[in-house]
Design a protein around this nucleic acid. Structure first.
Lengths: 339, 339
DNA sequence: CTGAAAGCGCTTACAG
DNA sequence: CTGAAAGCGCTTACAG
């Protein structure tokens, strides 16, 4: 299987040099080690000729580095995650790193298992969209000086790097936009999750409602069976509150499912109910009418995440000061909020 | 960094046994090697106590196995790829394998680089959505007995496993559906790509057109600058052929972009032009009117891909007989093709 | 300027 | 039933 692969030993034997010399040259330490230009040249030429490539496993065993980043998302099938994955991959690639990814589907036990698996495989750093109950494991990573960046949501109990958006403000502005479009009875459709990003969005909604002295209408859909529950619970909710004239969906799949329900009910958007969604995507853009949405700056997030991780990776450990960055979002106004 | 990790050596020392014994027990070979139940128990208990986990790098170096599968897609940000990725990951996970993925963005040089990088990292098998010019590299993998499964498209010049859909028939039926809805002037919007799946779709279209003695209208959009080109070229195309009453989009992003253009032009679907898209997704389902689409059986594909790969992985090489499987698709009829 | 040697953490013939 | 030893392919003090 790998017998045909050339190793450093083969090269040193063929050229009558030592492994050390070959290794130094291969790692660009020729000058530093003051190896003669001729030798260097001869080795490089031979390496090229036989098409040698290093065995990263062996290198990793010695150096403890694999140039791999473990990337843990909730579900790679969700467009938010797949798009940011695509951008992160691109950025990581530029920095010489590869990505191993896996999805937790929101389950803590799966997440825990993944972190451990990644560790056993010697990934150099972690990008994690955390589930609940990961505090201990992530603290441990930090203690072991393994760089970690959380994104999308964070764990309040522990001090670690976090890149996300300003969820509270984003939702506040989304709802404010509805008020400005003369909506008085604004509902928030959210999940029952205790994740920080969802809580912040809820708070943004509440702040606006309180500030404007409006009535609060909140529907919380359990993550389990979310598809069916969204159908039934949301329909009941709408029927229960016929006065509703504005709706904010707190995350992408709620908007997609909710819009379908609204269409089936024959609710006119925006004349009867104005709609704002969180997390822009093609569905919202092409929906008729186009749906006003909070856009997350994916590219910027991806860049910040990788930059932060690369710095720590170079340091060989997490920076003393953890960063906690909440990027502002942009509200893309479309027809669903009238004019 | 890893000093604090327990190794087999630590265990054998602590327990007064040899590395061999520990290794055998850890690898479930205790019975086979007739190691006493007491010793086994003692070791297992200790391993649990200290929380030992094996170093996969070291294991990989010796065994040549890493339990990792390299997954090469065109672009993980494309919903087709992200969804199948999600399913493949799930299936692979069940079989004890992890996925490393990366995107080629359709570039052969990137694809080549990725395959080599994966090889250097010792992945056990490959799932590849190939670009052009990969024949040599993939043949080489096969020679080295590294299992490979191609998907979505294949390379006619080489004999390797392939899982895909029956593109020719799928497109034939999509167009036939338009004919049955009394459309006479049916266009195909496709890409200039020479990829097998696109060629087959083109052939399916041509077969139908020929069979029904209709006029051929084909617009081919270059992959480069596809967004802009779709806008301009498609608009010109529609204006040039005012008689068009049916359109087939040959792949997902063409449909999404094309529908937007059609909307901006105020073209009525389906009264003026009926539309069929290839590769179903939420955008098509929620578009107004709902867009009739060819659905790819993603779950089935994912399962076939992984099953095939796991068999070969167990064999330690590609099976003698390569399989070339084209799964039938399903046409989901919605309002965009009238009734 | 270059090399001999130890060691990363594991597996596996071989030996008893 | 269990162990000593070699080896996977690399890096890196240490020595000269």
């Amino acid at each position: 299987m790998k017998r045909n692969r050339v190793s450093i030993k083969d090269i040193s034997k063929a050229l009558g040099l030592s492994n050390t010399t070959i290794s130094f040259i291969l790692n660009g330490k020729a000058e530093e080690m003051r190896i003669s230009a001729q030798v260097t040249e001869r080795v490089l030429a031979y390496v090229k000729e036989v098409g040698y490539t290093p065995n990263y496993l062996a290198r990793g065993l010695v150096t403890g580095k694999t140039n791999t980043i473990g990337f843990i998302v909730e579900n790679i099938g969700n467009p938010f995650f797949s798009q940011i994955a695509s951008l992160i991959e691109e950025q990581a690639y530029k920095g010489g790193y590869k990505i191993i990814y896996s999805s937790t589907n929101g389950q803590s036990d799966k997440a825990l298992e993944l972190i451990r698996m990644f560790r056993d495989r010697g990934v150099d750093g972690y990008i994690i969209c955390p589930t609940e109950k990961l505090e201990e494991e992530i603290s441990q990573l930090k203690e072991e000086n393994r760089p970690v960046v959380l994104f999308d949501r964070f764990l309040p109990a522990i001090d670690s790097h976090y890149i996300g958006i300003d969820n509270e403000q984003a939702m506040y502005e989304a709802c404010k936009h509805l008020v400005e479009r003369n909506r008085k009875n604004i509902a928030l459709i959210t999940t029952d999750s205790r994740q920080t990003q969802m809580i912040s969005r809820l708070e943004g909604y509440k702040r606006l409602i309180k500030e404007r002295k409006l009535n609060e209408y909140i529907l919380s859909i359990p993550y389990e069976n979310r598809k069916e529950r969204l159908q039934s619970d949301f329909e009941d909710f709408i029927k229960k509150y016929p006065k509703l004239d504005g709706i904010c969906f707190a995350t992408n799949y709620l908007a997609v499912g909710g819009l379908e329900v609204m269409r089936n009910l024959g609710l006119k958007i925006p004349s009867k109910i104005a709609v704002v969604a969180f997390d822009d995507n093609e569905v919202l853009r092409l929906f008729q009418p186009g749906i006003t949405a909070v856009e997350q700056p994916l590219e910027e997030m991806a860049k910040l995440i990788i930059d932060r991780l690369l710095v720590d990776l170079k340091l060989g450990k997490s920076a003393e000061k953890t960063i906690h960055k909440e990027i502002p979002t942009r509200l893309i106004v479309r027809e669903s909020t009238g004019n």
